[in-house]
Design a protein around this nucleic acid. Structure first.
Lengths: 109, 109
DNA sequence: CTGTTACTTAGCCACATGGCTAATCAACTC
DNA sequence: GAGTTGATTAGCCATGTGGCTAAGTAACAG
């Protein structure tokens, strides 16, 4: 995947991973803490965490035998920015269309 | 894919599809118009369009032999909303941490 | 009605994804 | 040091994804 947006969007395209993000907004947590609520084998769950980490949405450090993860908010902003920009362009287009419509309603002012 | 956010995010996790979205913000276009700039066989490209349509980000009608696509902005808002909400929560958490830090700096006011 | 154009379908391929079990590693606990 | 616990690795499987070619359909142009 070339673009950073690719990995970010695809990391967010999964409910398990979004749930992890939501959970981490509350504060750091260990792998097994995060795993707790998810009905899924640990190795499967780990893959999700790895994907989040590769996307840069999460960082982690291992101390002793437990790994602690915390969220990295900045990359999500990239995704949000893209969406916001598209919305602005879209709204701008609607404005132009509306202006056009109004101009047509009043042919010769 | 259960959730609507799943399909939306995963639809946006590809540069070709994002480019199509960006192009469509400028106004409706036919399949081959959209295909033009992309160095890819038509059937491959069609798969991308179908994925966009299944995600609800795009609608299309066929008149005569050409299919015209236009953007459906609303679903993107769902994705943006989710991101915005996460950011708010994150910022809220930072505020609380900062408040805590300030409280600790001035132990007994 | 023949040819061209604009998609569409079918079918193939390689690789990624998301799940699993079993086994291993490393660090605490007793 | 033996056992337990937290995390990881290896390897398997089914399905999805993203690309292709080849062939088919449907409408428009002459």
């Amino acid at each position: 995947m070339a673009n950073q947006l690719d990995t970010i969007f695809s990391a967010m395209a999964d409910p398990t991973r979004r749930a992890v993000i939501e959970r981490l907004l509350d504060g750091p947590a260990s792998v097994s803490d995060l795993h707790g609520p998810h009905d899924m084998a640990l190795p499967s769950f780990l893959k999700h965490l790895n994907k989040l980490e590769r996307a840069g949405l999460v960082r982690s450090e291992k101390t002793g035998r437990t790994r602690t993860l915390h969220i990295e908010a900045a990359p999500m902003a990239a995704a949000e920015d893209w969406l916001t920009q598209q919305r602005r362009l879209w709204e701008g287009r609607l404005d132009r269309l509306q202006a056009l419509a109004e101009a047509l309603e009043r042919p010769k002012t």
